[in-house]
Structures are given as structure tokens and as C-alpha cells.
Computed example of a mutant assay.
Amino acid sequence: MSTSHSASSSAQAARFALASKLRELRLDAGLTARALAAKAGWHEAKTSRIEHGKKQPSEPDLAAWVQACGVPGQLAELIAELRAVDSAWLDWRRAEKAGLTRLNVAVRELYERTTLYRSYCQDVIPGLLQTTGYTTATLEAIRSTRRVAVDDVADAVAERMARQHILYEGNHRFVFILEAAALKYRRGGQEVMIGQLGHLLEAMSLPSVSLGVIPPDVERAGRWPVESFYVFDNAQANVELVSGFLTITQPREIAMYVEAFMRLHEIAVFGRSARVLIKAAMDALE
């Protein structure tokens, strides 16, 4: 991935962090850049370009690097970091150039294979729990705001609705945490919102679903609202930002999102208490 492919500071930071780690391994091994290049079988300039983040190493490059430094046990973690850099950032303009459906189809297999799905949403109902009307209003707003040229909202909505079969089938577990504000932000008008909130009440009865709401007056104790994020098993976390889509595959960073999720889970209410909050939001609309 070249620098031009990403405007994300997170992706750039990940790229330079990998380069820095490789340089530290070389220095710890007491090797000059020339000596490492000789051991790895490439030109000294390649070592320099990798260490300065100007060239992204391949997985074979990493294997040669750790072998030259005498630390083959580091290879698995380095490969995980490399793959995290490769897939870290996708800006919306590039992702949605051909419309909204393509990206939704691209993540279908990820949802299908996930057994434990954890979702935290600050201002929107998560996609797996959305009604057709709510999804349509959301995607139409996205298409307008992000100036997506292709009008394939209907196809994208159909794809998202089809994805929801995993709520009813297979060995999947879902834990959703919503900020109370997500129940009140209107998308699609009064009738759509009432239908959406009613759908949440129905979804709560599914054996596979655990739905928690963080009350607006809860003592946060440092558990402040953060960006909406989704964790797929312990294999991947996705974060939707204003400018693009961040995919995290580095185990250490995934663990940070899991920890953040658990801290938010601690202040959420479930069952009857969550229903009270949802019904109050419905009453306010009616």
C-alpha cells in the first residue's frame, strides 16, 4: 500500500510502526543495514527504504529479515502487523466509487463466519438490527452526503436485509451496546423510527441476541462515548469514521477494542431496563 492510497493517520502510523520495529530488530542483532542486506540477499538500499517506510516489505521479506536477525519467533507477529497495514484503511470515495452495494457484499463472508459479534454504536442502530425503512433512510442519506454517483440504494438495502439471516440461523452470538442517543436520532421520519424501535424490542427476544443500552444519566467513570466499532470474534475490528473505513487485524489493537467494549458493557442495562428506555423513546415519538 503506497502512502497515496491512504489519508488515514492510523494507517500511516501502522506502516511506520512496522518499519520502526524492523529497524530495532536489526540494531538489536548488531547488524548494519549493509550486513542485513547481505544476509537477506538484496541491495542495501532496500533495507533503508523499508526502514524509512518508503517500501512496504512482503511476507518473504519479513521472513528473511527475522532470519538474518536471528529472531524467527518474531515472524508471526510481524506478518500480522503487515496484514493490518495492508487492509487498514479504505476511504469512502474509493470504497463507494461503484455504489453502496459492493462494499456490503464484500463483508458478507466476514459476517457469515463470525461466531461472536460485538457492536458498539453511539448514534445509529447497528445494521443487523435495522428495519428496511431505517436502512433505506440511512443509505439514502449516506449516498447524498458522500456524493455517491451510482444509485444502488435498493440493492444495498436488499443485501443488508439478506445478511440478517445469521440472527436466526447457525451458531452465532451477538452482543449489541447502544448509547441511548441512538434511540432518539431520527432516520426516515416518525413512522420509520417507531417501527425501528419496535423491531429492537422483538430482536431482544432472540436467543442469539443480547442488547444493552447505556442510560443517558449513567455515571460514566471514564467510559466516555467513542466511535462506533464492531468486533468479529477476536480476529478483526472495524471502525467507521467520517472519511473512511478502518479495519484492525493486529491482535494487540483488537484486544484494546474488546476491553473498551467490556467497559461500556459494564454501564449498559439489559432486559427489562433496556426495554423501558426503548419504549420511552417510542412514547416520545408518539
Rank of each mutant, 00 (worst) to 15 (best):
S2R: 00
S2N: 04
S4K: 02
H5A: 15
S10W: 03
Q12M: 02
R15Q: 13
F16V: 03
A19F: 02
K21M: 03
R26I: 08
A29N: 01
G30W: 07
L31W: 12
L31H: 08
T32D: 06
T32S: 14
A33P: 03
A35G: 06
A37K: 08
W42E: 08
S48H: 06
S48R: 06
R49C: 05
I50R: 03
I50C: 02
G53D: 04
G53K: 00
S58T: 01
E59M: 04
E59Y: 02
E59I: 13
A63Q: 12
G70S: 04
P72V: 03
A76E: 13
I79S: 00
I79N: 00
E81C: 06
L82H: 04
V85K: 04
S87V: 08
S87T: 14
S87Y: 07
R93C: 15
R94K: 15
A98W: 08
A98G: 10
L103Y: 15
V107W: 08
R108Y: 09
E109D: 15
L110V: 13
Y111L: 09
E112P: 09
E112V: 11
T115M: 11
C121W: 04
C121S: 08
Q122R: 13
G127L: 11
T136Y: 02
A141F: 05
I142M: 14
S144Y: 01
T145W: 13
R146N: 14
R147Q: 14
V148W: 13
D151M: 06
D151S: 05
D152N: 12
D152V: 01
V153Y: 08
A154G: 05
A158R: 14
R160C: 03
Q164M: 01
I166Y: 11
L167W: 11
E169V: 11
G170W: 07
R173E: 11
E179R: 00
A180N: 07
L183W: 07
K184S: 13
Y185D: 10
R186I: 15
V192W: 00
V192Q: 07
G198E: 04
G198R: 01
G198T: 04
L200A: 07
L200T: 12
M204C: 10
L206G: 09
S208Q: 12
V209A: 08
G212H: 06
G212K: 02
V213F: 02
P215V: 15
E219F: 14
G222Q: 05
G222K: 02
R223K: 06
P225Y: 05
V226L: 03
E227Q: 15
D233M: 14
E240Q: 10
V242T: 09
S243T: 15
G244S: 02
T249Y: 00
Q250A: 09
P251C: 05
R252K: 12
R252L: 11
R252N: 08
A255C: 07
V258I: 13
E259N: 15
A260Y: 02
M262N: 15
L264C: 12
A268N: 04
A268G: 06
R275H: 06
I278G: 07
A281M: 04
M282Y: 03
M282V: 14
L285T: 08
